[in-house]
Write a protein that binds this DNA or RNA. Structure first.
Lengths: 253, 253
DNA sequence: AGCTTTATTTTCGTTTTCTTTCGTTTATGC
DNA sequence: GCATAAACGAAAGAAAACGAAAATAAAGCT
């Protein structure tokens, strides 16, 4: 009943005190610890508070988005793919990196490339490559999607149309057995399609987990990709279509 | 990784002091040295601090642009100005925040505003407000300027022209005795001018250091500003022109 | 270099807090 | 009024935070 009552008040207390304790709130509202824990779990899930042992604190403003991502892309497979991809990216070119932890991994491997002009619709990529002073970074505009630091929407697509770059390095959410690149977000699909249209050469980076997932929206086909970087040899059917389409496959070890 | 109440506070102390000691923190929190060491290990693993013998320091290097800025905007004066400004910003509006440590300070004070739609050409503002889930963040496109995390150039100006927002909060490099807002960078000037043209109401945030500096490019006049937030009472001549122009002046204490 | 002091890592047991799963109560819709 | 769903409380097992002590490593000193 009073859950709707407690939630705003918990937030108010948190803002005033900076933190709240499970025990303190239980006493304040005259309910059990379990109930407060449920409240805090709900508020944390909604992103309003940050859960800590024994209570919760205001979600810190200095937290950088992409920081969770950065941890997940520690995965060795992703790094190997990224290294193999970066090794085929020369200096002195313009390239696009889109959304995705795989492309972020590539960005990390580009830290010591010289004279790159990098366009991206990914805040994390921009944050990473800000550390490479031999590299111009240009962001597309767009609405910030907190889940992955992506800039999406019409603004992003329109910006991309104003460029023509030497190379596009893109990731995707899933890759099916027919060789179609898929994504969860229809908005992101039109961004990716715009990228492919505006680039002279295209690299796809995708680890094996993408082969076993599915997603509803179709970006393009492997036929539109020049080189596909992954971490395990492809199943026979996929390998066959790649050969037929002239799509090079690089398996990073 | 699990969280404790201490983590945010340790980070805050680290930002304020530049470093933290195991012993100092143990005394501060009333826990044993081992416990603090565990905290510092966690924070170091998460990349938020850099571990050193006897304590920890702010992590240097590539992780975050604008991090030096963020230290300087800890200055009490800037925070006071920002607080005064944020207090006059209601919820449920669209606003623009441009480049500058002063506007970043405002962004920090907006962390708990609800239902804002924030446009910005400042990566640091975007990073900060990414932490506020009650707030849509839209970035203009543009070339990333590492010095301050700004997005500048034609792309930024063009994006801004596509919007009309309720409020613009802008900073400037300098403010002369005739009441002219000045900037060092001509590119940034045209961005700021575009912002002023597209907004219904305009706030200027500038601390006293801006009054004693000069800069070559003219953005606009105080006559174009609705409210000017600063930290010390204005000199008589400036105060006079503000009265004449109907520019409200708020001196934050 | 060798010694001393200080700091760190590792391991362990204890305590606190969390999660999960149940049954009960309270509100809401039909 | 009855059915359904939501909120709540209780209890047990799991997870974590914590402090203590011993072994190891680093820094400072002569």
């Amino acid at each position: 009943m009073s859950q709707t009552f407690r939630h705003p008040e918990i937030l108010e207390i948190a803002r005033r005190e900076g933190k709240v304790t499970v025990e303190g709130l239980a006493e304040h509202f005259g309910v059990t610890l379990q109930t407060i824990r449920r409240d805090l779990t709900d508020l944390a899930e909604a992103g309003r508070l940050e859960r800590v042992h024994g209570g919760a604190v205001l979600s810190s403003g200095t937290t950088n988005i992409g920081y969770e991502e950065r941890r997940s892309l520690k995965s060795e497979a992703k790094r190997a793919i990224a290294r193999a991809c970066a090794a085929q990216i020369p200096g002195n070119i313009s390239l696009f990196l889109n959304i995705g932890t795989s492309t972020e991994a590539v960005a990390m491997e580009l830290m010591h490339h010289e004279n790159l002009m990098v366009l991206t619709n990914n805040m994390n990529v921009a944050n990473i490559l800000a550390g490479n002073h031999g590299c111009d970074v240009i962001l597309t505009g767009g609405q910030l999607r907190r889940a992955d630091g992506g800039l999406v929407g019409n603004l992003a697509t329109e910006t991309i149309k104003q460029f023509k770059f030497d190379l596009a390095v893109i990731g995707c959410s899933a890759l099916d057995r027919e060789g179609d690149l898929l994504d969860f977000d229809i908005q992101e699909v039109s961004v990716s399609q715009a990228i492919l249209r505006q680039s002279r050469k295209t690299f796809l980076v995708a680890d094996q987990t993408k082969l076993t997932r599915s997603a509803p929206a179709r970006i393009a086909s492997l036929a539109n990709i020049d080189t596909f970087f992954t971490d395990v040899p492809l199943p026979a059917d996929l390998a066959a279509v790649c050969t037929a389409w002239g799509t090079k496959v690089v398996v990073a070890s």
